[in-house]
Design a protein around this nucleic acid. Structure first.
Lengths: 209, 209
DNA sequence: GTCTATATAGGGATAGAC
DNA sequence: GTCTATCCCTATATAGAC
């Protein structure tokens, strides 16, 4: 964002994007307050001064990374929940696609949950802007199915929260699950992949009349 | 732990226990790296020097608090899962008692999940010591019910994880849920209370043959 | 036990040479 | 653009008077 004009002339392998990618891995592992600019610089193979030259401040880097992480997750949710699929099909799509996304970005749920809980001042406006009324259409769809007698009488919001729980929690609590079930990384991944098939069946059995 | 002999003579209202309680609220709100000794001291109405006098270091306080938080949650889980109740009754007990516990300590899940993910060096030994083989008996119980044809064929570990998801996630992700569903604190609490009844029914419908 | 003052270190950010 | 050196502030921790 600084010296935009000369950027294309840079012959160095440390592009702004690649540094940001490195910074992302550090922030997602350590959280905002646990992250040291020095550690980012070391991991990126540059020095602190360069970090500040590119991004000005720790806050600016964090904001870019949070935005990117958020956009990696939530638009996809929105897209699925607002599609025109039938409820059953939609639930299947959601778990399948969402778990795939999280398998590729396993640290994002924990990162977002922690930062929104521990750093709310920084993020309040951001969330009010992007999260309001996400599930309106999906709630309506569930309500209609209830009225049609296809699923049991239940607060639609509870179903939505349950679906989110089942999809997201095992990623946010990955180390805990691995301890409790004694899973190595590969076994954990298999376990999560199985859930793409198990979870839709689980939810649909739970709510169908 | 220091000056134990004179402790009973202390006429001051700042007991070691009450300071620890204050420290707990700060650590659970801010996380380890976000916590400042100054903030604990201010909240407890003492000064930093006294904090160090009582507890020696930030790490020592953290360790005590983590241990306490952990013990507030996991023995209870263990107790329920290892009880002799029938499966259906056990699932009901679990959700009811566990959600009650979490409503009184809503920050603990997020705290433990974050610290174990971001601070693993500090906690590895602790967890290996306390978490191994927690659900052995419960898994056996589910297996027996499957063999008896009372519940569907499914990896018992998946059921356990689902139960944990449904109980814990809404607390770990409290701010997120409140944003998405537009819930004030009181509404959120009602929403969680409803889940004590909804979740056992949800899970049992999902797995019964 | 409690306070003030201070030692010591670490981290974010900048200055300025090249 | 890149580096070294450094500023400045904050945070943990301790010394020492009372």
């Amino acid at each position: 964002m600084i010296m935009k004009k000369t950027k294309v002339l840079s012959l160095d392998h440390h592009s702004e994007a690649s540094i940001l990618e490195t910074a992302k891995s550090v922030f997602l592992k350590r959280g905002y307050f646990g992250t040291r600019m020095q550690e980012i610089a070391d991991a990126a193979g540059i020095n602190k001064a360069m970090l500040h030259y590119y991004f000005r401040s720790k806050d600016k880097i964090f904001e870019a990374i949070f935005r990117e992480s958020f956009n990696c997750i939530f638009p996809k949710i929105l897209e699925i929940l607002n599609s025109d699929e039938m409820l059953k099909q939609k639930i299947q799509s959601f778990f399948s696609r969402y778990i795939d996304t999280l398998l590729e970005n396993p640290h994002i749920p924990g990162f977002i949950m922690h930062e929104i809980a521990h750093n709310p001042e920084r993020l309040n406006s951001f969330f009010q802007q992007h999260l309001a009324d996400i599930p309106k259409k999906f709630i309506k769809q569930i309500k209609d199915e209830i009225d049609a007698g296809n699923i049991i009488k239940i607060d639609p919001r509870q179903i939505i929260v349950n679906i989110l729980c089942l999809a997201v929690f095992p990623f946010a609590a990955k180390p805990l699950i691995q301890y409790v079930l004694n899973l190595k990384d590969a076994e954990y991944k298999n376990f999560m992949n199985d859930r793409k098939k198990i979870l839709p069946e689980f939810v649909i059995r739970a709510i169908k009349t």
